[in-house]
Amino acid sequence: MRLLHTSDWHIGRSLHGTDLLAEQEAVLGGLAQVVTAESVDVVLVAGDVYDRAVPSADAQAVLDRVVQRLRRAGAEVVLTPGNHDSARRLGTFSGLLAAAGLHVRATVAGLDEPVLLSDEHGEVAVYGLPYLEPEIVRGELGVTGARSQEAVLAAAMERVRADLVLRPRTRSVVLAHTFVGGGMSSESERDICVGGVDRVPVSVFDGVDYVALGHLHRPQTLTERLRYSGSPLAYSFGEAGQQKQAWLVDLDATGLAGVRAVPLPVPRPLVVLTGTLEELLADPAHDGAVEAFVSARLTDAVRPTDPMRRLQARFPHCAHLEWTGSGRVSDGRSYTERLAGRGDLDVVGEFVSHVRARVGPTQAERDLLARALGAAAHEEASG
């Protein structure tokens, strides 16, 4: 049996306010081509199907079209909710959906009830562990004392292993959305642990043939049978240049036979450009970034006027702007020391100078500031 391990689709996510639905549908819909080309039997989605608990109608429509394409290509689909999803909403009509080949495993009570699939070697049991919030699920799982991801996942895996005892010679796959020790995080994940307390050890998942992990957006291998697929798109400029992928997982008669990466297409790359505004606007070396999502880091000594509008004239998909110019440098004095002996007009003038990187107000601007300060003082004095 061949499985395609994916996770963290985050349908409905934006990039600095820029809608990504078109790019998401292009990549996720393209998974159907992988299913056809690689003869994939099952597509796994290990959590964070949507980017928010209440997805938009447009986001739900994208998921509907993507799943239909995967089913037409011949694959069953098994998915679980992550910390961004609403397990209850995602699990709506799960019984009916299963009859159509979409298997949603979204409840704590059903986490030891696998999706049973078969090939020429027998059965494969696919268990879906929804994201387990310790404070919410510890009672249902019978966890006392410890209030951690490790404790609730250990209890969940005990139930899985107990079910497997009743299924001799059945190969097993587990989907889990969590932070396993040894994994490397990215900028675009929502933290689900505090100070490393909720990092889960690899040993929690002992006893199964393959563990399809979700939550971390960087593809990575923790052990041969324990992997993160990462997100199908880059969701922060910290992931610029990162090759996104899915894992092709082969099971033979005895268990895990092999795993290999399948690169995913990049509908619109993320690029970080650094330089002065004029350099970014004029340098032909940046021609390749015209169709990319751009983060511009401006090094101008003086903050340029209307930089985003000017950048978007050349880079229509410029989504982020940061000014790193030298005007931010402080003289080392405290705020109180800088204000000592200065009148209101001097203080406001220094603020203008700071914002403009040491270019102070003109005389006309000082006159305007003086009138505004005078009006404010008169209003305060009169009541």
Rank of each mutant, 00 (worst) to 15 (best):
H217L: 10
R218V: 11
R218K: 14
R218G: 07
Q220E: 14
Q220N: 14
T221S: 14
T221K: 15
L222I: 05
L222S: 07
L222V: 06
T223D: 02
T223V: 03
L226F: 10
L226R: 04
L226P: 07
L226C: 12
R227Q: 04
R227S: 13
Y228P: 12
Y228F: 15
S229L: 04
G230Q: 13
G230I: 14
S231I: 11
S231G: 13
S231T: 15
P232A: 12
P232Q: 08
L233V: 10
L233A: 12
L233G: 07
L233D: 11
Y235Q: 06
Y235H: 09
Y235G: 12
S236N: 12
F237V: 14
F237D: 12
G238E: 06
G238T: 09
G238C: 06
E239R: 09
A240K: 01
A240R: 04
A240P: 05
G241S: 12
G241A: 07
G241H: 11
G241E: 06
G241D: 02
G241T: 12
Q243A: 15
Q243W: 13
Q243F: 11
K244S: 09
K244E: 12
Q245S: 15
Q245C: 10
A246L: 04
A246D: 02
A246E: 05
A246I: 03
A246V: 12
W247T: 08
W247A: 11
L248V: 13
D250M: 06
D250C: 01
D250H: 09
D250Y: 02
L251R: 03
L251T: 10
L251Q: 08
D252K: 02
A253V: 06
A253F: 00
A253Q: 05
A253S: 14
A253G: 07
T254F: 03
T254P: 02
T254Y: 07
G255M: 07
G255I: 07
A257R: 00
A257H: 03
A257N: 02
G258A: 03
R260T: 15
R260E: 10
R260L: 13
R260M: 11
A261Y: 10
V262S: 12
V262Q: 14
P263S: 15
P263G: 13
P263Y: 14
L264E: 12
P265K: 11
P265F: 09
V266A: 01
R268W: 01
R268T: 02
R268E: 05
R268I: 05
P269C: 00
P269G: 00
V271N: 08
L273Y: 05
T274N: 13
G275P: 04
G275L: 01
L277N: 04
L277W: 04
L277P: 05
L277Q: 05
L277E: 00
L277T: 02
L277G: 03
L277M: 00
E279W: 01
L280G: 02
L281W: 08
L281K: 00
A282I: 03
D283G: 02
D283I: 06
D283T: 04
P284R: 09
P284S: 07
P284L: 13
P284K: 02
H286Q: 11
H286W: 15
H286R: 09
H286N: 13
A289Q: 09
A289P: 04
A289W: 13
V290P: 09
V290F: 09
V290I: 15
V290C: 05
E291I: 01
E291F: 04
A292I: 05
A292D: 01
F293S: 00
F293I: 03
